[in-house]
Nucleic acid binder design. Structure first.
Lengths: 149, 149
DNA sequence: AAATTAAAAGACAAATTACTCTTAAATATT
DNA sequence: AATATTTAAGAGTAATTTGTCTTTTAATTT
């Protein structure tokens, strides 16, 4: 897989929040049920994103999690970095530490391009803009396709 | 990571064999030492490739493993499929089962392109041709860069 | 103040991936 | 035939990732 499960869960949760009206907190219970992700596991993952300032949380009744302003303007790339770390965008495709333009592995040259392609895919649109597009195109966010933007 | 460790080990071993003269068996002991991969682990991985007909093995003194004709003409893509399976090239970037051009996830459209970019990177050159290029360019195949083509 | 709601934190369990070790089978050499 | 070499096969261990459960902390409501 390109991204870890944790990472994918984090992205879907971020998109979920982007789809909702700004500034409102949504409970992890609600999100975990709608997105069909284990409640406790999702909690853990979103804690990483709040720690990174991409989300904000509030305890108590009507509390929950929302995108911070930073998080709304951020891209999926930022979320991936926060969860999976930068490895995918920095490391050699064959995992060779010394690989680089001087002493490249056989994949190096194409991998540099492919890697940017992945990076661009994740960087080109902010969460808020994806959400706008989602409202038009009704992007899938769940296995059953029942999520409504 | 894009590819599993097993897969990367398999690719490096395949490139190792491609670099050596055709038709000669190379022992797993030799390969595991030169490539700095655990002997038993490498054994397991190459068994998958021999089972797939991409490599051939021979037991006994001066036995070992070599690329089959099919394996030499094959690409890294074929090796990846044999070890990691086709998931990377077929599945949704968010792991959503129903995702497709009808009901796409937010990443679907760009992912289709990016995915082909990965596929092309692995498909564009046969093992034998990479080996030819390797002899010119002395590609890195080990962490220490000591492999000689 | 007491009870309720909801996230935070931490310990624990299961599943997967990565790696090791031992024994068996095949081939070659002596 | 006996011994040595080398892959095959299988069981077992370690590490990482994924997922669960319990307790604590913060906030709200009554």
């Amino acid at each position: 897989m390109l991204l870890s499960k944790s990472c994918v869960y984090g992205l879907r949760a971020a998109l979920y929040l982007a789809a909702k009206k700004n500034g409102e907190y949504h409970s992890l219970r609600e999100m975990s049920e709608e997105l069909e992700i284990s409640f406790h596991f999702l909690t853990k993952i979103l804690q990483q994103l709040t720690a990174d300032g991409l989300m904000e949380s509030y305890k108590g009744p009507n509390g929950g999690v929302r995108l911070s302003r930073k998080g709304g303007n951020a891209t999926l790339f930022d979320m991936v970095i926060a969860i999976d770390g930068p490895g995918l965008f920095t490391q050699c495709a064959l995992g060779l530490p010394g690989c680089g333009s001087q002493e490249p592995c056989p994949l190096h040259e194409s991998w540099v391009d492919t890697r940017s392609s992945i990076e661009n895919m994740l960087k080109k649109t902010s969460l808020t803009k994806i959400a706008e597009e989602g409202k038009e195109k009704h992007f899938r966010l769940t296995a059953d396709g029942q999520f409504s933007w």
